[in-house]
């Protein structure tokens, strides 16, 4: 009788532990998953600021406060390297919304990525959106400096060439001294 009672207690305790762990896991599973939604205008004129709005929610659709959202634009660099370039970060407010103002410097379509990297209680998530930047000119200068017609590095090469050419001429005079025939 005592043995049966003991086994019953053990089984009940095990069921309680497994059940509570299961409940706890079930609860965490709901809040661990996150969802990030990025809202951007479909197009904007070049030179104007764009509002990038990212909304962060947990698995149950509740807003997550104080989450850091990092914004990137997809870019190519020096025609060989490409990747995501961070353009800024913002923290979510009470509604789970993070906002970043960005001023694109090139026309054409840009791809914006918003990322929540996760924390102890929430998993990471990201969203991607595209913006069409409309304009006829580029604010980005591919090359630094002022372009003056007929002025370039060739002038430097020319000057150096002239100087070193003169040195060679002078050295040739010295060689002429060395090879001069004796006076009659």
């Amino acid at each position: 009788m005592r043995t049966r009672l003991f086994i019953l207690v053990i089984v009940a305790a095990l069921l309680a532990v497994v059940g509570s762990v299961g409940l706890a896991l079930a609860d965490d599973g709901g809040s661990f998953n996150t969802k990030l939604s990025l809202a951007v205008p479909s197009s904007t004129p070049l030179g104007q600021s764009v509002r990038l709005e990212a909304r962060l929610q947990d698995g149950s659709g509740n807003p997550i406060k104080q989450g850091t959202i990092v914004f990137y634009i997809s870019t190519g660099f020096l025609s060989g390297t490409s990747g995501l370039m961070p353009i800024g970060s913002a923290a979510t407010n009470d509604l789970g919304v993070a906002v970043l103002e960005h001023e694109p410097r090139q026309n054409g379509q840009i791809e914006v990525v918003a990322r929540f990297l996760g924390d102890a209680r929430h998993g990471p998530s990201q969203d991607v959106a595209k913006i069409s930047i409309v304009g006829n000119h580029q604010l980005y200068e591919a090359e630094a400096g002022i372009h003056v017609p007929f002025v370039g590095k060739w002038i430097l090469v020319l000057v150096l060439g002239f100087i070193w050419g003169t040195y060679l001429f002078v050295v040739s005079r010295v060689l002429k001294i060395a090879t001069a025939p004796p006076e009659k």
Binding site: K176, I177, A178, A180
Partner: peptide, 8 residues
């Protein structure tokens, strides 16, 4: 360099 002071 073989200097002898010639005119050349």
């Amino acid at each position: 360099v073989g200097w002898r002071g010639t005119d050349s």
